[in-house]
Nucleic acid binder design. Structure first.
Lengths: 328, 328
DNA sequence: CTGAAAGCGCTTACAG
DNA sequence: CTGAAAGCGCTTACAG
């Protein structure tokens, strides 16, 4: 069964391809008789016509694909949810999201030249060369930033603020000697380092000793060793800010392994609010992020990049907040 | 900066577009002088030529996009890893994976007609109408099956076997009164029901009483209620097979809430081996699935669908196995 | 071994 | 208000 084309619709409806195109695209500034319009629409419907994305792309030099470039780190439930919402939001505008995991750090050029996306959206920073090439080729680029960023096309989730928020919560609970549990995976450094910087800055601000930092991989031994280090000093650590919930859950296991009480001896706070956090022993206090809002904002950013007119919306106020549970 | 086309390469190298195309595509059955070949290749390289996917698609009627259709359920780390591996494996063959989450259950027709993917790969079953339409349009369809399946283009991960494996492990540990913790999310039914069927069948096979089934959502209250139900009978449940690790972690919390010992009073086994399983209290026994192998198999299936010649590879023997930890 | 030409399906100046 | 025609970049019969 060959493809139904706009030429078929034209022939079948008795109008020219031009008219069919005008009707189907509701081309602005072109006036079409209502009866003509109806007849074309009806014919297209009856024939099951779907425009060819390839032909449109070839013609316009731009597809309706949004290329979403993920950095190499493990995606995890949060980014997962983000992609989900973003895909749904952009689908309403006829845009499809093509997710590309940039493992190997190869240049993106081959991919975006081949796909000619209408926008490239990066969840991590782009390589200098890639950014330049895309700019030169006139492909709009949008993305998220890890820090506060003056560029409006960038959605900034200041990672440092997350760390600061963790500290604020722990201090509120009466703690003064804090530690930071960093992830063992180097690919997370871009996030982890910034969150740690936030923890450090907030500690300094509040006149607390600098946080003791240990890397914790996702097993009991590693976490247990970290806890040993944190508790060995003259002024033992009483609260741990973890990079994320998975690391925090490992820390909980490490603390339990030492026979210490949570939160009486050691309090722990994570980031992400993954499902396992709620049912941990004890239930894990964590930082919740407004993923939906972030996704909506990113979607709006993409649309704004496409069509200069529509401004990105105002930022949501509640980007993240602490969900207090039994671990602090 | 306008796009570099094959015409540019032709002009610049002094050959015709035909020759350029032959060289660049290494068209089989066409013999090209080595010096010509080199000159064309060198020119293309120098100009930074990348073929236009849109034009190729329009010409051939088929893009190099693989449309991966996910069912509506939460993706989770396992599917996540699967997508990751699949994307990498297919990228080596010049194929890009377009992930589409089929929320809302809308017909897929508009999407695949627009994108003209070279293969549609489904991780869940397709709607009858969609499957028929794609077949009629000549688009190869591949996918995974939830049951053993005679069709070679389908990768079957028999969900029932996972349930059976859970039961076998629990029985090996000396348990005879078993329960099944089903997820509260109905979208998971396709998986959950099959795994439960496997649990039931294996219990029957071994002459055990039928498993008591409770739905468990991902919070302590729900899990606690399920545990209460399981323990209330004359013959209290001593072991729980959970739908997946997240449900299993909730069950652990429920058991702890009742002050029962794990695994002495109640043993728990999950599925997936998520990072949180290893650091749970106690460490969670679970069923590990060979995601890499599944992804490789799916990739091979896609390639086979594209090019009749290459057979899908032999199945990996070790599709899944139990990782025994402290919870059983 | 290489080239001129047609056509994939679409949109949009340009005429009428 | 509607139509004939060109062209986006590619591949592939068809000639030479």
């Amino acid at each position: 069964m060959p493809r139904v084309t706009s030429a078929d619709v034209a022939r079948e409806s008795g109008f020219s391809r031009t008219t069919v195109s005008y009707v189907l695209n509701a081309t602005p500034g072109v006036v079409i008789t209502e009866t003509t319009r109806q007849r074309v629409l009806e014919t297209a419907e009856r024939l099951g016509y779907t425009p060819s994305a390839a032909a449109r792309t070839l013609r316009s030099g731009r597809s309706d694909l949004v290329l979403l470039v993920l950095p190499d780190w493990t995606v995890g439930p949060v980014i997962d949810a983000l992609i989900d919402h973003l895909t749904a939001a952009l689908a309403e505008h006829g845009l499809s999201v093509l997710v590309h995991v940039n493992r190997s750090g190869r240049p993106l050029a081959a991919l975006w030249r081949a796909v000619t996306p209408c926008v490239v959206l990066g969840l991590g920073p782009f390589a200098e060369a890639d950014a330049r090439a895309m700019k030169q080729a006139g492909i709009p680029v949008a993305g998220t930033a890890l820090d506060e960023d003056p560029h409006p096309e960038i959605f900034a989730v200041p990672q440092a603020s997350i760390g600061a928020l963790q500290v604020a919560h722990l201090v509120e609970r009466g703690h003064r000697v804090l530690a930071y549990a960093a992830p063992s995976d180097d690919r997370l450094a871009a996030f982890a380092d910034r969150r740690l910087a936030g923890v450090r800055a907030q500690c300094a601000e509040l006149g607390l000793p600098a946080p003791l930092v240990e890397r914790v991989s996702l097993d009991v031994e590693s976490a247990s060793a970290a806890v040993a280090a944190w508790r060995s000093g003259d002024d033992p650590v009483t609260a741990v800010a973890a990079y994320n919930d998975e690391v925090a859950l490992a820390v909980l296991a490490g603390v339990r392994a030492h026979g210490l009480a949570i939160p009486a001896d050691v309090a722990v706070i994570g980031v992400d609010d993954i499902p396992a956090a709620r049912v941990a022993a004890p239930a894990l206090t964590t930082v919740w992020q407004a993923i939906d809002a972030q996704a909506d904002y990113l979607a709006a950013t993409v649309l704004a990049a496409l069509d200069g007119s529509s401004e990105p919306p105002a930022r949501t106020a509640d980007v993240f907040h602490v969900v207090a549970r039994a671990s602090t």
